[in-house]
Nucleic acid binder design. Structure first.
Lengths: 193, 193, 193, 193
DNA sequence: AATGAATGAGGATTCATTCAT
DNA sequence: GATGAATGAATCCTCATTCAT
């Protein structure tokens, strides 16, 4: 069984298990043993690879944020024109990779984590800044000087939609969620988005 | 002169201490002992009055929501006309009683709590429903059939603004926060709000 | 069972159990659970009263040193003249309260502890300083300026005798141990001690 | 040219690393991983060569004792006459090879180890017996029948000086340490040593 | 009403040791 | 010969909760 190069495989399994467990528990009150068990290894091995529970959580955050980033980049690359890119960007925020039950739960809990771990706060700020700059880039041609303010409102609305989704039961409704933000965009830039 | 029983006094002290401790810790990872110490009593007494930690948390939630409700009712009573009442309602959401460091932290953590405690979820849904109905009531005359959708967007935006405030350092900026939502309202109903 | 004023009783029981366990194990590799079990309580209670294993060890050291100090004071009070007091002091170092199997083991391990815990080192230095000053006080009239050097040699010899006793099997032989140091004293001050 | 097997090289590196780690930690609380890392190999290899942590410790003891023995033999070979040999023997006990920071710490901890490992106790007893017989051999011509008792006192004093050195901070002072024991010798045999 | 006393259950982390490659 | 992979067993410490007074 012991092969070489297990580290990335194990780490990846642990990161996925962490997100799944946070999703299941709905909070950060998950034990390393639970995470490790789901990832198919002993908790000792989890510590061997990550050093501490904190680092496991941070790795899970980075994973979620990096999946999200890839989703956004892919969407933007396939879109044309400011309006088209804005729509694609907003839709990407609610794409199937990110806007799923467990990820929404993880996201909410990362905000809590950020109140304790400076590194977690930093990661979330990076996410917010990127979203803001992406929005501003394509809002500028449409709303000029108002771009910054509009982007801030849309960014906050996206977070709010996530937060409210976390309270609902059942599977997340991507279309409705994205629709809310797209409608807001429409009101901000005028005309149908 | 009826001598006031200790029960309400003790319970109130515990509820306040709970909110303060959640604010301090930035999470629900506060011990009953910490709460009781801040409230000036033994943890055994805290259990005596509330039965369990869960109930202490729920009481703290009810307290926050009831303060918030009072703030909103007061604001609405003093305002006139749909537009005036909408502005007052939004401002009330960021009033000094609710939009303060520790309450914002508590609010965020209550969303986490709601994922575990059905009672907590119920309380948050009551809050959302009231906000929605308050918004709809005064949006109807202004935007007609769009009232429901607009109210949902404004409600989610308010939550998003809270969430983002939780990530920031330093004292919360009420004017800016309220300004964001008011600007959105303006775009939704047309003309300066 | 729960009565008031248990703290000193519990702490005392823990301190005694600690010394006994160190004696049994022959090293500091004793668990809080073992100590607590011997003291007739849960390990949680041990932590409740002492806060940490470190503090338990330090309390045990203070206990041993204070017993030793009492023994020495008692012996000196009952002796007359420099020579008589020196003999009494040396005998006190090997009195039945201190020169027993488990205490010798504890003593040795406290020297190890002192290499890690500054507080432990401080306690041992206090012991050494007191012994030195007691010796010098009564050596001065007998050997004048050599008092300091002679005291240092006698002090080190006492420690060496303890150390060697730690290696032996069976019950410690007080008379022989004290005899070694008394013989040394005799050589230092001339004439039979 | 016979190619030297790795075994003795590895074992030697581990033994040296063990002494260094015990010196650094000031206790036997050093992990095999720490020792192996300092010796430049994996902990698995350390186990491969020694079988267990216990055996590593015992090998380290043998190493220290054998260095000490060589030092003593060298000193005795270069000295003449009972008095000269006694002085040389005492000085050898505090020679630069043995009376150094980490070795003193190791020595103290070996006494602790001896309380658990019979083999360790045996090694220390061998050391004590050899020292005793070396001392007696050259004391006999000077003090006759008192040789055994004097040797025992000097041996215990040497150990005591080591023990006290373990408590001090800073580099060990060889001259002062040897001086203490030489002064004692002088008192025992009469006349300047 | 109030609390000190007490603990069972659990949780992060460490570590000697084994094993397949 | 050498090591990364892996884990079972501990160990310290915490905490919600109960109980006798």
């Amino acid at each position: 069984m012991p092969k070489l190069g297990m580290e990335p495989i194990r780490k990846d399994a642990l990161v996925r298990a962490t997100i799944a467990e946070i999703g299941r528990a709905g909070s950060l009150d998950v034990t390393v043993a639970q995470i490790a068990r789901r990832a198919g290894m002993s908790s000792a091995l989890a510590h061997h690879y990550f050093g501490s529970k904190e680092q496991i959580f941070l790795a899970a955050m980075r994973h979620v944020l990096s999946l999200y980033g890839a989703e956004v980049r892919g969407a933007l690359a396939a879109a044309d024109g400011p309006r088209g890119r804005l729509v694609a960007l907003i839709r990407a925020n609610f794409a199937s990779g990110s806007f799923r039950r467990e990820t929404i739960s993880a996201w909410l809990n990362f905000y809590v984590l950020a109140r304790t771990l400076p590194d977690a706060a930093r990661l979330l700020r990076v996410y917010q800044r990127r979203l803001q700059s992406n929005l501003v880039h394509d809002l500028r041609p449409l709303v000029g000087a108002r771009a910054e303010a509009v982007a801030a409102r849309i960014g906050a609305l996206i977070d709010g939609v996530y937060l409210r989704e976390a309270l609902k039961a059942g599977a997340p409704d991507r279309a409705t969620a994205a629709g809310m933000v797209l409608a807001s965009l429409e009101r901000e830039i005028g005309g149908p988005a």
